[in-house]
Design a protein around this nucleic acid. Structure first.
Lengths: 202, 202
DNA sequence: TTTAATTACTGAACACTGTTTAGTAAGTTT
DNA sequence: AAACTTACTAAACAGTGTTCAGTAATTAAA
């Protein structure tokens, strides 16, 4: 059955072709400009063809989301290098903030946009879950060096803090801060994370 | 010039008619269903008419945003009743979280959606700025009872925390938490806020 | 009071969006 | 060579925000 094997291979290649085009479009042109028609144009196929490989736009976005979470996990792996778990937490949170600020569109897709993150037990949810597990593991290793009652709420709070900082910025809500002069917003965020880590450790 | 006065009055009434219809639609049907055509249908005018009173959809959204911020300010005023500034901060943060959880669509419009919050010196920005000032004022009154270096970063961090909690929930990102049983997510959030307040006070 | 100018409004169109369906052309099997 | 299956697309549907020419009513000027 070599033919059906090849057919299956070609099908996966086509899925990848669509996926890659969508991803490239997404990081280059942003969410708004990434329509099915534009993607179809890019890969020189009809828009209807995409529907033969993906149920709808949401399914495509889940794919992008999965890749983005994978990327985040990779960065975590390479950036969190310390042996001290508290130091690890510091590296983790800063890495998170930097990732969000450097990849606003991907961050959007992963943590802000409405549609995805709906279905359980798919790749996207798996990768997202892994990233969160990375955080909870670090926090658990911190043990009683964190001034938190249990690891679960500690993880939630910690995540909420960094996500709050990033998402307020990504969606331009930090103008009310009225930063004096041309202070780098990126540094202020990192500083806030620093202060937070200091605050929750004893 | 009584005529032009009446004309101006009628113009404002029309603006209000559109605004109210849009707001009603927004809180009842959500953002997705609130299209210009639907609004126009509701007030029994042509969609084109709306453009005679609002430059575009964004301008309309700014109006809604302004009202929502006004509403939030009101709630702040009636809910923050304590004399102790730290207690005030606790009331403020909890009120914020509850507002977000009870009015997800409005919260969306105020703190998540992309388009608005662009232009300075308009009503929406004013009201948003006021809400933030409410927070910074409370924090300043707390003085050295907060374990923060300066009031500004304290305010940012505090806001980031509550916004993080609410927005992760509003956009359904808290499923990774894997809450045991049917625990009320609302209570967990309030609990997290509690713990945070406790954490930053000495 | 009749005519001219201004105002308020709309129908229809434009350029998009995601999505579905009927039909075609090629590849595969019999 | 005929029958079947697969891969693909043109065209349409229903929706979006937005613009513009044209109409009817109101106001101002003659």
């Amino acid at each position: 059955m070599g033919i059906s094997d090849r057919k299956e291979r070609e099908k996966q290649e086509m899925r990848k072709l669509i996926m890659n085009a969508a991803m490239e479009m997404f990081v280059k042109e942003g969410y708004e400009k990434t329509s099915l028609r534009n993607i179809a144009d890019k890969i020189e196929y009809s828009p209807a063809t995409i529907y033969l490989y993906y149920k709808d736009k949401d399914e495509l976005l889940w794919g992008l989301q999965a890749e983005a979470f994978g990327k985040l996990n990779e960065i975590f792996q390479t950036s969190v290098t310390a042996t001290d778990p508290v130091k690890q937490l510091e590296q983790l949170t800063k890495t998170y903030v930097e990732f969000g600020m450097n990849n606003p569109d991907l961050y959007d897709l992963m943590f802000i946009i409405r549609s995805p993150m709906n279905v359980k037990d798919d790749e996207s949810w798996q990768n997202g879950s892994n990233a969160f597990k990375f955080l909870t593991d670090v926090i658990e290793r911190c043990g009683d060096r964190l001034r938190y009652k249990d690891a679960k709420t500690a993880a939630l709070s910690c995540w909420a803090m960094v996500h709050g900082l990033v998402s307020l910025n990504v969606r331009g809500r930090c103008k009310v801060l009225e930063l004096p002069g041309e202070e780098d917003i990126n540094k202020i965020l990192i500083q806030s994370v620093d202060e937070y880590i200091e605050l929750i450790t004893r």
